[in-house]
Design a protein around this nucleic acid. Structure first.
Length: 499
DNA sequence: CGCGTTTGACCAGCGC
DNA sequence: GCGCTGGTCAAACGCG
């Protein structure tokens, strides 16, 4: 199936030049565009020989320089074009006649490949649809839960509730805490701000942050619960900020008590009124650890990379708020609990903790345990918390995670090794390795491909979800891999050091 | 000149 | 009631 998955990717309009998939050596799928072929003046020989072992050898002879490593998969059209010259060239020992005879066979092969591509595309589309449906269903299920748990005291302050302010009673049970909004909604002009917020898409339902960008209903519901929850990610990173695919603008910096490192405040600038904010601060004990706390939900569509992170954080927040995350003693976590409990996040318990003691319920994903960032191999045995988002998350951020999980669980995959999609891990992974991972296209590609293959060929349950996520990511990535990098770079550039 | 960051100030919540 | 702290604003500043 790997082949199929790759093909699916291949089907995307964008040349997957970044797709560096050594492990996936699929004769048929490797198009003539492979760097080894396309890059050289004489691609024809390679292309023609592509389907023949013997010829491959021959080609190898002719092309001393090894392929650049990137596995570029192109559209058949390109392949065809590349093939033609082969037949006409007046190259040395290869008789034209012979090549011409091969043409039909090659073309037939191409035809088959095309068919398969089409088929895979169809599958992908189906999976995507299924994923979306599942996601919505999940949201629907989660929301009610969020309302059941101990009803937290009604929000002390009221948001100038224009419209469906998240805090509004309807599902405000999730109003977990004096949310961050508290300050925002505070005082004078702040009231105004609050008003704006409620007015703005943000308040209106802009939600989707965490869950990426969700359409209307889901968003609304989700936002209510998510808004007050925070998802904190601890990861080792030298970068000043985590490259999560979103665009952030720094609006403040403060010295926080008990930490010599300043805390930087960022807000999402991908949309005018996006309510999502994040705080970035280095760990006092270990400054190599970057603590990023996300809050709020995006009220705008997100790029794949951002979606991954958003989805992950959203999922974590949802669980937290919904009480679906059992505490250490097995009782459901509620916003009311005032202690640190180990969350049963997919990842090991040591990686995710829930803190309700803080003003806001916070899920902390700690990725600092173990090898830093991208290269860190996560335990393949980690419990799985298969949320649709996980894949996305991994995909967009840290591909290592995907790679690991999908590749075979061996975790042997290089730079980007990572465990499966446990949210926590993925997230952490993402965070910690974000910069490196995203900028490292090859890894990204590998992980993506691996993830897709694993998902498709893997388990059935979340199969669709993952696939969808991947698919989205894949498609988007096809167009956005570079943009992701750009975003990342932008973020890094635009965001000043927090210290 | 526009955009983003820096930084001091302001405000509200909370604890004592 | 006061002080501390967190969060945000907005003018000033710097950079491309």
């Amino acid at each position: 199936m790997d082949k199929g998955h790759l093909l699916a990717l291949d089907a995307s309009p964008r040349p997957l030049a970044f797709l560096n998939l050594p492990p996936f050596h699929h004769r048929g799928t490797m198009s003539a565009d492979h760097p080894s072929a396309g890059g050289r003046g004489r691609r024809s020989s390679v292309e023609v020989d592509f389907f023949s072992d013997d010829k491959q050898k021959e080609a190898a002879k002719k092309t001393p320089d090894p392929p650049p490593g990137g596995l570029a998969i192109k559209k058949k059209a390109d392949l065809t074009i590349n093939l033609l010259p082969a037949a006409t060239r007046d190259d040395d020992d290869e008789p034209k006649m012979q090549q011409q005879q091969q043409l039909p066979a090659l073309q037939a092969e191409l035809g088959r490949m095309n068919e398969e591509n089409q088929r895979l595309r169809g599958m992908l589309a189906q999976v995507t649809t299924s994923y979306q449906a599942l996601q919505m269903h999940l949201l629907a299920l989660m929301q009610p839960q969020a309302q059941h748990p101990i009803p937290p005291p009604p929000p002390p302050r009221q948001f100038l509730g224009l419209g469906p302010a998240p805090e509004e009673p309807s599902n405000s049970s999730t109003e977990v805490v004096g949310s961050p909004r508290r300050s925002s909604s505070t005082g004078n002009n702040k009231d105004l701000q609050a008003a704006e917020r409620s007015d703005s898409p943000d308040a209106a339902g802009g939600p989707s942050s965490t869950a990426g960008w969700l359409p209307a209903e889901g968003r609304q519901q989700q936002e209510a619960s998510m808004r007050k929850a925070r998802v904190s990610v601890r990861a080792r990173s030298e970068a000043p900020i985590i490259a999560d695919g979103c665009q952030w603008r720094k609006y403040g910096q403060k010295m926080a008590k008990g930490n010599p490192c300043p805390r930087a405040y960022y807000r999402c600038t991908m949309a005018n009124a996006c309510p999502v904010r994040k705080q970035v601060q280095r760990c006092a004990e270990d400054r190599s650890i970057l603590i990023t706390t996300y809050e709020g939900t995006h009220n705008h569509p997100l790029p794949p990379a951002a979606m991954a992170m958003a989805s992950t954080t959203s999922a974590a927040a949802s669980m937290l708020l919904s009480g679906s995350m059992p505490s250490a003693d097995g009782t459901p976590m509620t916003s009311g609990n005032s202690f640190l409990a180990r969350a049963v996040l997919p990842c090991s318990s040591s990686m995710a903790t829930i803190s309700a003691s803080a003003p806001f319920p916070t899920v902390t994903l700690d990725l600092t345990h173990g090898p830093p960032s991208a290269a860190r191999p996560l335990a393949p045995t980690t419990p799985q918390f298969h949320l649709p988002q996980a894949p996305l998350y991994n995909q967009s951020t840290k591909f290592s995670g995907l790679h690991m999980s999908s590749s075979d669980g061996t975790g042997s995959t290089p730079p980007s090794a990572g465990p499966p999609p446990p949210i926590g891990i993925g997230l952490a992974d993402t965070v910690s390795a974000a910069a490196a991972a995203i900028t490292a296209d090859p890894n990204f590609t590998v992980a993506l491909a691996a993830a897709i293959s694993s998902i498709i060929g893997g388990s059935g349950g979340h199969h669709h979800q993952q696939q969808h996520g991947l698919q989205q990511g894949a498609n988007a990535n096809n167009n956005n891999v570079t943009s992701s990098s750009n975003n990342t770079a932008t973020s890094n550039n635009t965001n000043s050091e927090t210290q």
